[in-house]
Design a protein around this nucleic acid. Structure first.
Length: 600
RNA sequence: GCCCCUGUAGCUCAAUGGAUAGAGCACCUGCCUUCUAAGCAGUUGGUUGUGGGUUCGAAUCCCGCCAGGGGCGCCA
């Protein structure tokens, strides 16, 4: 936020280095640690090391300190910088607190919901996430995926990228057909009431059907015959679907719609608005044409004449000596397409129809190899955007008793966890927030319950697995979503009580407490954090920041009186600071797909 | 066999190659007649799996090893 001062000082340092014939290394700036004051810091170790490598007989640390001292002298006085110190090879610049406090607070309040928004990047990013199989109920693994993808989409959009959100549900495949088969055979005509109940019922049918179709130990010959007959019926149904059989297609469309109804409602709850829906069934045909093209171009090898499949020897085509991407099949010997085939077709649509410059795939880390293969084939195929395809892999969510499995019916459903979250919040709320109107109570409980759940997914780096523990996920104390939401509520509470006094621009020309300085520093960091989170494709950066900001506010709140401040100017300034904090917390939470309630 | 990820406080996790490795939970001690105690302040807790290397400086980069997880041509 203070690039002007930073650049001025940088140019002064460079000037001095040129004059004294010192080979300056890149200057990296960071906040000053342990100071309790507010400013920025850089060091001269890299520069001293350059000299040492050039043959000067020096010790790096003392030389760095020497340069820092000389730089300090060369800079002299700078407007807005209260003092400069050279210590241990670092150059620390302390800001004039009142001026910077005013600037930070004014900027946050003037920009409001746009505070922290980055300049337009003139680059289009598509984020693909939310790829559940239909009709399957949405479990907590899907929730991690969707929250991660949505937070990323919000972050890159706010950072200045033209952003497209894309969902890619699996609406066809043997799993989907299995449900149709079991429905037709055992449950025809049934339909539970309620979107979620109906979806969960389909999941149950799926688990039942899978159990019937799996070989058992000590199977009698009758059981085996029956199982094989069932499997035959199922595969027959898949063939009919493939051939466009009207009855099977209508059955499929009905079940698919049931699954979509449930998914759409979950996305409504999660406040996710998809821009594009890609369906697996829609890229099936186009993907087969692509296979022909790849064969014609010599990228794919057709082994069907000898009874094989169509494959791509990726390493060989790329000219790699060591095996990296290996070889993979893009068309089965029976002519049907595969996951990889469909992803190639989908990428083509993303590049050509949607003109995306970067394509991010938020997909389980276990599919890393497949996506790397897809990107490599896209490169062979001649798409320059393949370089900017990025797999944001995330560790899978498992249960203390092991991996989740829809086929076995061993899943923790998002809706169940959410309902439990709301119950728990309501229980706490009846004691903590007795003044909340009944009409608002339910909504606030949802916002807090969902906030706790989302934050528990976002506060762990994406490459780490999560063993889901409902008590941890729904904790409301400490490093959690509700902790951050509570800071927002407390800020709001102060502002509400002060509403007789309009919040006017204020000078911070009194001696600021350490808590105020820390809080102002945190606010000033927000725009930079937005860019960092976007550059690194890491919502965790924003999640950690939101906690730090809330933490600074809670400490301030406890130690520094606002409404009871000793002087009217101080009260006015602190009210401005509280308002700026509230705005910044709200903006940060919004990027994490977490609501910022006014009361709780 | 090859490839990828992970290993940091009792537990769950942070930490653009930089100053003193930080939080939360749990444990213990204080703080509600004062802007919401879903909070604050403090105590306790570390050979960053291990052995080398690079560097002025390594939890971070490189190599070996150990442990756990995942993946590897007709599943998605």
């Amino acid at each position: 936020m203070f690039e002007g001062e930073q650049q001025l000082i940088e140019s002064k340092i460079r000037e001095f280095c040129v004059k004294d014939d010192i080979p300056i290394a890149e200057l990296k700036w960071s906040p000053i640690p342990f100071s309790g004051e507010w400013g920025i810091s850089t060091s001269f170790f890299a520069t001293a090391a350059l000299e040492a490598r050039a043959g000067k007989k020096i010790q790096v640390p003392p030389r760095a300190q020497e340069i820092a001292e000389q730089a300090k002298a060369a800079i002299g006085r700078v407007n807005g910088i209260s003092r400069i110190e050279a210590v241990k090879g670092y150059l620390n610049l302390y800001f004039s607190t009142s001026e910077y406090a005013r600037r930070v607070v004014d900027e946050a309040l003037a920009a409001g919901p746009d505070f922290g928004r980055g300049a337009p990047k003139h680059e289009r990013i598509m984020v693909e996430y939310c790829q559940p199989n239909l009709p399957h109920s949405f479990h907590i693994g899907h929730h991690r995926n969707t929250v991660l993808g949505e937070a990323l989409a919000r972050i890159v959009e706010f950072a200045g990228f033209d952003t497209i959100r894309a969902s890619y549900p699996g609406d066809i495949g043997l799993g989907v057909i299995t449900i149709l088969w079991a429905y037709e055979k055992f449950h025809k005509g049934q339909e539970p009431q309620g979107i979620h109940e109906r979806g969960q019922w389909l999941l149950k049918i799926y688990a039942e059907a899978t159990a019937m179709l799996e070989p058992k130990e000590n199977e009698t010959s009758e059981e085996k015959a029956r199982r094989e007959a069932y499997d035959g019926e199922r595969r027959e149904m898949y063939k009919k679907w493939d051939a466009g059989d009207p009855y099977v297609r209508s059955l499929w469309l009905m079940a698919r719609e049931w699954g979509l109804d449930e998914l759409r409602d979950i996305l409504r709850i999660l406040d996710v608005k998809m821009d594009v829906w890609f369906f697996e069934s829609e890229v099936d045909e186009p993907s087969k044409k692509i296979v022909e093209e790849l064969i014609a171009k010599g990228i794919a090898d057709d082994e069907r004449p000898s009874g094989g499949a169509v494959i791509v020897k990726i390493d060989e085509k790329l000219g790699l000596k060591k095996e990296k991407y290996r070889t993979n099949v893009i068309l089965r010997s029976d002519g049907t397409s595969l996951y990889l085939t469909k992803d190639l077709a989908l990428a083509k649509v993303k590049f050509e129809q949607y003109q995306v410059d970067r394509s991010i795939y938020v997909v389980d880390v276990r599919q890393s190899m497949h996506l790397q293969q897809a990107f490599a084939i896209l490169k062979l195929w001649g798409f320059p955007q393949a370089e900017k395809c990025y797999h944001l892999g995330y560790g899978f969510v498992s249960l203390p008793e092991g991996a989740m499995s829809a086929r076995r019916g061993r899943v923790v459903l998002f809706k169940d966890v959410m309902d439990e979250a709301v119950r728990r919040v309501l229980a706490v709320e009846s004691e903590k927030g007795p003044d909340i109107p009944e009409a608002e109570r339910q909504r606030v409980a949802e916002e807090i319950g969902l906030g706790a759940l989302a934050y528990s997914m976002l506060s762990v780096d994406n490459n780490k697995d999560i063993v889901f523990d409902i008590n941890e996920a729904l904790s409301f104390d400490g490093h959690t979503g509700p902790y951050i939401q509570n800071a927002h509520v407390r800020a709001n509470s102060i502002l509400k009580k002060a509403n007789s006094q309009p919040v006017q621009p204020a000078a911070f020309n009194y001696e600021l407490t350490a808590h105020e300085i820390e809080l102002i520093e945190q606010i000033s960091r927000f725009p930079g954090k937005v860019q960092q989170a976007a550059d690194e494709y890491r919502p965790l950066v924003m999640a950690s920041y939101a906690y730090d900001l809330a933490n600074a506010f809670h400490s301030f709140y406890h130690a520094v009186p606002v409404l009871q401040a000793e002087k009217e100017e101080i009260r006015g300034a602190r009210l401005r600071l509280v308002a700026a904090t509230k705005q910044t917390i709200a903006n940060a939470l919004r990027l994490l797909d977490i609501k910022a309630p006014e009361v709780m």
